[in-house]
Design a protein around this nucleic acid. Structure first.
Lengths: 348, 348
DNA sequence: GGTGATCGCTAAAGCGCTTGAGTGGAAGCA
DNA sequence: TGCTTCCACTCAAGCGCTTTAGCGATCACC
């Protein structure tokens, strides 16, 4: 009868040393591909380690200055806003893919707001918990880069604009400005002159970038019926804003939503008001997901590879951990895939 | 000018000891509320620690046998299946809430399949990385409970059925059987006799429970046009199955979808085929989210408090970590909230 | 006034690993 | 042969914390 409940002691380097007939240091050298042991000894040690099913104790490693083999990711989002979000899970999945290769753990935390997030960074740092962090949802006037700089915690900002003030941080970003310009371009080409952008959270760096670009593009073309309205990303606000602008005297002929959930809610709201999509009003979603093909008309959307985004970010972080220089890398511009929710403006 | 780039050394207990004029051991006793120091010393030590901004090094703690102050959660799901999932993020958010109170970290990993997941548990265990784990998506013939038993890793299974074969594991579960029975009951009351259940992944414990219950309920009532079809949870399969069953000679009058995404896709598919919801066919979604109120008709759905589910699970795990006994606790039965997608069967 | 307890604290070992400073022996060189 | 050099390896310290044993002082007790 197998002693199932025995909590099976973990083998340590000492065990390996004994079995292999060498000192602990030799084992350490052998297992870490460091010079100082002969090839035959190295092989023997490796074999024994394998047999015993040995794995280094991260705690011990961390303690002797090797780092925690863990990176952190905190998501600052009020609990009730935590809804349908395909982007985030995909991002994380991409991150994992490259972290897993290196046996790096991902410490994950969700908090209410940015100050809480900063507190978490401080704690993680003080507790030796992480070797670096991935920062999401960068903001204008963001306190986090300063903090991370101060703590000397390697970090890569996901979705931020290039930031020369923090040469220690890497940045991975998508060219929202370019994407917005291309969307406006296309809508303009279709004859649209009054465009409303139902944006996401004010203060988020990419929100502001999109808004600025839209304004610039409008001015360049002398368009006056163009505006951005910020929201909390919820379907409720998406629908509310849609209703409001569609009820105005000169309703827009095109709507750009900063995520798929709002776009969907917006289409529903528009339909309810008697607007037909895309005949009366065109709709584009700034997030492409299964949702966009789940209702009729299928939503035209800006599409990007979120997993690859995550992979890129994680790669930059590991590079940083390896002592590489901070870099700012741009992922491909989101591409507008046109489905059924966009068409020529009616009043052309 | 502040020396910003100085990577600010973390204070250790030794620093505190020196400043407070006591030994390190005294500091340890004082800070851990252990007897062995006078109250005045304890207070002084506490004050110094606070001043210095000291935080215990988890690495050191873990090394001296105190555990890693971390729990693990691995999500085994093929990358491309990782879509719109409101449940999971909410669950995690609830988990975090109680873990954060205790300053427990959450180590998160997504892998491809269950064998990979087992490998992760082994690794975490060997590396001393986690004190316990939360297991999601339990399956029939699940190898994980055995493994965790063997490793002696405290664990709570989320969404499993009570399991007497593993007295070491806690279980937190919702009564799917009861919920399914109530749904069938309601649909039956509305006159529905032919019901198709578009289920989730075969092999998932709760999928099987729902299927079994549906069959039992059907038999009890002598219904013959009742079946379950398993899918991969994707909108694509949801739509495909919907089309298939609706095209049969005797199409069902009610459809139960195991998640919101499939329900939505199903409604779209039905509509395309000329079926009107709920006049021709009723639809209920086994997941309630913003999606359910985003399309017309609004989806009737089984609603539950996913965050609370997470909180409960995390609480059980912390209890286990504190040396408490394994328990199996049931969260409230999901409640059917009827919106617009359910109605009387046509052919009654 | 001696014997124990109890209290408040210190000393030191140990957790599993890394690493710089040795050490003994073989090889290289004159 | 005597010298240095190099190699393969061992020793021991140290990372930051917990914990056991122990130690001197105070206190209670008969």
């Amino acid at each position: 009868m197998p002693a199932k409940r025995s909590p099976a002691r973990r083998p340590t380097m000492k065990d390996i040393a004994r079995r292999a007939g060498v000192s602990e240091s030799a084992v350490s050298f052998a297992l870490n591909d460091r010079p100082g042991v002969s090839e035959v000894t190295r092989a023997r040690v490796r074999r024994v380690a394998e047999q015993l099913g040995w794995r280094p104790s991260t705690a011990a490693r961390a303690l002797s200055g090797e780092g925690a083999a863990t990176v952190g990711l905190v998501l600052a989002r009020p609990a009730d806003t935590l809804g349908v979000d395909s982007f985030f899970l995909q991002l994380v999945s991409g991150i994992q893919e490259v972290l897993a290769e290196r046996h790096l753990g991902l410490l994950f935390q969700v908090v209410e707001d940015v100050p809480d997030e900063c507190a978490v960074y401080r704690r993680w740092w003080a507790e030796h918990r992480v070797d670096g962090v991935l920062v999401v949802d960068p903001r204008t006037d963001d306190p986090r880069p300063d903090l991370l700089d101060e703590l000397g915690l390697p970090a890569v900002v996901i979705g931020g604009a290039p930031d020369e003030r923090h040469p220690g941080l890497s940045t991975v970003w998508a060219d929202d400005a370019g994407a917005m310009a291309s969307v406006v371009d296309r809508l303009y080409g279709l004859g649209h002159r009054r465009i409303v952008h139902i944006a996401g959270l004010a203060g988020l760096a990419h929100t502001e970038r999109r808004i600025r670009t839209l304004r610039a593009e409008a001015e360049r073309r002398g368009l006056t019926g163009v505006e951005s309205v910020t929201t909390d990303y919820s379907d409720a606000e998406g629908a509310a804003v849609t209703r409001r602008v569609l009820r105005s005297a000169t309703p827009p002929t095109a709507l750009i939503y900063d995520n798929d959930v709002m776009a969907l809610a917006g289409v529903a709201a528009a339909t309810e008001l008697g607007f037909s999509v895309p005949a009366d009003v065109s709709v584009v979603s700034w997030e492409d997901s299964a949702l966009c093909r789940m209702v009729k008309p299928w939503l035209s959307a800006l599409s990007r590879d979120s997993m690859e985004f995550g992979r890129t970010a994680a790669r930059e972080l590991t590079a940083l951990l390896d002592g590489g220089p901070a870099r700012t890398v741009r992922v491909p511009v989101p591409r507008l895939v046109e489905r059924e929710s966009t068409g020529p403006a009616r009043d052309v």
